[in-house]
Design a binder for these strands. Sequence first.
DNA 1: GTTCGTCTGTTGAATTTTCAACAAAAGGAG
DNA 2: CTCCTTTTGTTGAAAATTCAACAGACGAAC
Lengths: 219, 219
Amino acid sequence: MKQYLSVLAACPLFADIGEEQLLRMLDCLGARVASFDKKYTVMAEGAPATYIGIVLSGSVQIVQNDYYGNRTILSVVQPPQVFAEAFACAQTPALPVTVVADEPSEIMLLDCRHVLHTCENNCGFHQQLIFNLMKDLANKTVIFHQKIDITSKRTTREKLMTYLMLQAKEAGKRSFDIPFDRQELADYLEVDRSGLSAEISKLRREGVLACQKHRFTLL
Amino acid sequence: MKQYLSVLAACPLFADIGEEQLLRMLDCLGARVASFDKKYTVMAEGAPATYIGIVLSGSVQIVQNDYYGNRTILSVVQPPQVFAEAFACAQTPALPVTVVADEPSEIMLLDCRHVLHTCENNCGFHQQLIFNLMKDLANKTVIFHQKIDITSKRTTREKLMTYLMLQAKEAGKRSFDIPFDRQELADYLEVDRSGLSAEISKLRREGVLACQKHRFTLL
DNA sequence: GTTCGTCTGTTGAATTTTCAACAAAAGGAG
DNA sequence: CTCCTTTTGTTGAAAATTCAACAGACGAAC
């Protein structure tokens, strides 16, 4: 596990926990690491939610596939972020989402039963872990509000602009890369891909933005 | 505070905490109760998020108002549920939502600084409180996924049917009441009110559902 | 460099939503 | 009971989205 220490130390789940304690905790938590190739399923919709995932390298997408074949991308998770923790903590009997590797990725999996209940060794940092988990879940909720802020807009143009302005704000620059190709961006914004492409072209002609591939610039 | 004990005992924030301890904690937490008339603002968008709210009686709506005047209803909170806890825990500098009383309501407010940090008296149940908060936030995230599952549908009909089927499932019956009037339902589903009314009429003519006011029946 | 598969932008038609306006129905106040 | 306000359903026109199909651009593999 030592090779992952630098990522894990930055993981919100292990904030304010020393590296030594961290290594000991990983043992208690029964942590294991799995590798996934691009497009492989890390967690499948419908499966019981028993694991908390941590992205050690690469990245994963949280995806919801509905009844009518619409795909919604809920978020992209990059190191050292956590995923599926909400379902694991809520002990959801069936995952409502699928987690897919967006590129070759290494994922650490923690059995939530070990996380939620103090272990026999009574590691003193368990309380800190719960606190961190709480903080992390609070932040996730805030991010969800952002997503709803974007997708609650009524038109493709408004959704796109809301998303891009948020990205620019986070990057602190007018130029920034997005983690999506066009189809993925459409699935994230919950709009039609061709309509999205048309809208991007229009905004480009209007001089509102420039873009090449994944890099956008607001003008 | 004693008068609120029965509600508070059922509140997810105080699960597995005895009534005596609860009363003592409320002191430590600096709990106070405020009353709001219908349509009054409990928390305003843009304000710093310092309080966790608990609905003691009545109900509140969590609302997001965007740039273009669109109103989105994120959720309805009824006793003994909690609200704004995510923003308080994440220490968001500005609330992204407004909380409005949906009817005359009594609200308990907890200063999040007291919740997040162990008090000097070191009440032993603080850890339990954090744990409960974590559980609650996990459940909230799951509910958010449901909301996205509904609003990510592309047509008014699909959104409505997804919502109603979920409500029927939760009620365990084909007949159930919804906490919205037509305008509010439209704002929750993120669609146009008149279009929603038209769609309901259509579904009624098709024999898919029946409804009178707030009561719906799936056929 | 060529080939193949994928991604992207474009277009037009069909569908759907939004918007504005109005009338009927329902509810509350006096 | 009557008046007044709010809510709900209806309609038609305008705007936007979705859908399907296609061609060019791009990248990867050989």
